[in-house]
Design a protein around this nucleic acid. Sequence first.
DNA 1: ATTCTGTTGCAACTCTGTTGCAACAACCCG
DNA 2: CGGGTTGTTGCAACAGAGTTGCAACAGAAT
Lengths: 148, 148
Amino acid sequence: MPFANTEIPGRFQTLLAERGIRMTGQRRAILNVIETAKKHLDAGQILRRARKLDASIDRSTVYRTLGLLKRHGLIDELDLMHLEGEAHYYERKPDRGHIHLACLRCGKIIEFDSDLFESLKAQMEKECGYRIAVARLEVGGYCSKCRT
Amino acid sequence: MPFANTEIPGRFQTLLAERGIRMTGQRRAILNVIETAKKHLDAGQILRRARKLDASIDRSTVYRTLGLLKRHGLIDELDLMHLEGEAHYYERKPDRGHIHLACLRCGKIIEFDSDLFESLKAQMEKECGYRIAVARLEVGGYCSKCRT
DNA sequence: ATTCTGTTGCAACTCTGTTGCAACAACCCG
DNA sequence: CGGGTTGTTGCAACAGAGTTGCAACAGAAT
């Protein structure tokens, strides 16, 4: 299950409205796609799904909306080890940064959560004097099924 | 210092020869560039530097050689938080996976090494049943100077 | 030297993502 | 509710990274 199921439908609309951001039909469609996605989607997939809700949506609008959501910290951009092509994948920003583990053979993605990861971030902040804004840990490997 | 200085010049040539991979002038030039680099380079920068050693080298040869080195696990491919553009950066594979911390304002990259990171990888292998091949932890934040 | 086979340069292409601009539509205010 | 301001959209053209097919070429082994 790629996403926490503590999600309130329409949360994005509320959060954007709170910040005085104009809500349009196209944005609603794109937000809807991202909010209801059951797997990680790239920009092209988001476009295709959004077009089912509003056929006129343009590629550039998807990119601009993804940029908006990124700037407002509502979504995270992932590479998922570039399993296919160079596209980026998007997901709702989880409360707590989690790790993506991709199987390099079958492409299965599992998400992983660990206190150790949090401690590691704390250690980096302390020892390097950086204030961490994003920490992306992406792992490629072979899942148990593919390793027989 | 972006790279361990325990590096033996010509190590790549040796390792590729051991695997029966043909050594050519172009590959030697590209390997040389990567082995002597003092910072992370992207494909375009590698091309420009390699051309100083052999002016006829083509872009595609650089990409094919980088692919070869990646497949043989001699180099790692990094995003460095896509600080500028979408290009990838390359570095010699370190013995021990290290972390890249990028300052989102000044672009400074520092490398970080931690036992916690090793424990985290071990924990993931155990709990997820994956055999980890690559673990890429890239962090964006603000360094002490940029945070005044 | 000859041959075999992997490698290269070239040019054309694909794909992701970006931008300038004129038309348009949210939202606010009266 | 209607009109104006300002942010947003579609479009089309572009930019940049990376890939591919192919003919010519060059290692390496005989």
